[in-house]
Nucleic acid binder design. Structure first.
Length: 274
DNA sequence: ATGCTAACCTGCGCGC
DNA sequence: TGCGCGCAGGTTAGCA
């Protein structure tokens, strides 16, 4: 599920329900996530929640002693429900809040995580992360310098969290379409003006998706249980075999890619038109 | 250093 | 109706 817009949507949805509440108790129904739940997370019990923040696809819930570090993996979601709300399979972690509500972490595939970051420290998972795509640090110049001599294809390149964070399979495909770049193009062979188009496309797509509440393909819901509506804006992702909405060519997928890499063969040329 | 692959899991849709 | 297969929004470790 979650790429940057979905995590940002989750963060915004949680803020009014979490800030200034106390975590009265925690229930760990299944600690076996991507990494086992940190034992230090127990220290969060009894603490008052301050600000929420997001770094890459990580959600940080701050308290006076440190932060809960959540990741939603492929299928995770965080929801606020009343204590009376029926528990579901795969509701792995529950925070019992001081206002009587509960925060529930639901994650069928268990690729998410719930870790602890002590105050004043940075969790190892957060080191080596690239710039935030919606910040000014993410620019065509940065991409061009990072891509120098790189033979890796541009799609894998922009999905590398050291290059830029938060761009997953959906938004990589969508941004490359809007920038007119073939996903198999070698990163090191892309011109500065073309990087500029891509940077603009990434910022625009992510921003629009946040405004639409994220992309719901199967099961993403925000903390209030609402789906996102960006799926109807998709140009190529998940549309293999269908007609390009711009030129009516048949949308294709990279033949050798491990995961679906959809693109329009006419709008996204491997070599520039002469 | 670079760049692929396997691995972590469950659920769902499809073809037979 | 049921079953096996392939695939799914992420990310890291490990190997060539």
């Amino acid at each position: 599920m979650p790429e940057l817009p979905e995590v940002e949507t989750t963060k915004r949805g949680l803020e009014p329900h979490l800030i200034d509440r106390i975590i009265r108790a925690q229930t760990i129904r299944n600690p076996n996530l991507r990494w086992p739940v940190d034992a230090e997370c127990a220290q969060l019990t009894g603490r008052k929640i301050g600000a929420l923040s997001r770094r890459a696809k990580y959600l940080l819930v701050e308290t006076e002693i440190g932060s809960a570090l959540w990741h939603l993996g492929m299928s995770g979601s965080l929801r606020i429900v009343s204590a009376a709300h029926a528990l579901r399979t795969h509701d792995h972690i529950i925070w019992h809040l001081s206002d009587g509500a509960q925060l529930r972490f639901h994650d069928p595939r268990r690729f998410g995580c719930y870790l602890f970051q002590a105050k004043g420290t940075q969790h190892p998972l957060l080191t080596h992360l690239g710039p935030e795509p919606l910040s000014d640090d993410f620019s065509a110049r940065w991409l061009a310098s990072a891509a120098k001599n790189k033979r890796v294809n541009v799609k894998a390149f922009i999905m590398d969290q050291r290059v830029v964070v938060g761009v997953g399979n959906i938004y990589a495909a969508e941004s490359l379409f809007l920038a007119g770049i073939h996903p198999a193009k070698a990163a090191g062979e892309i011109s500065l003006p073309r990087w500029q188009k891509l940077v603009s496309a990434i910022k625009e797509r992510l921003s629009l998706s946040i405004n639409r509440g994220g992309t719901t393909l199967r099961d993403f819901v925000d903390p209030d249980g609402e789906p996102g509506y960006f799926a109807q804006e998709l140009w190529v992702y998940g549309r293999e075999g269908e007609a390009c909405k711009r030129c009516m060519s048949v949308i294709k997928s990279l033949p050798d890619a491990a995961r679906q890499s959809n693109y329009c063969p006419k709008c996204q040329r491997l070599r520039l038109k002469k």
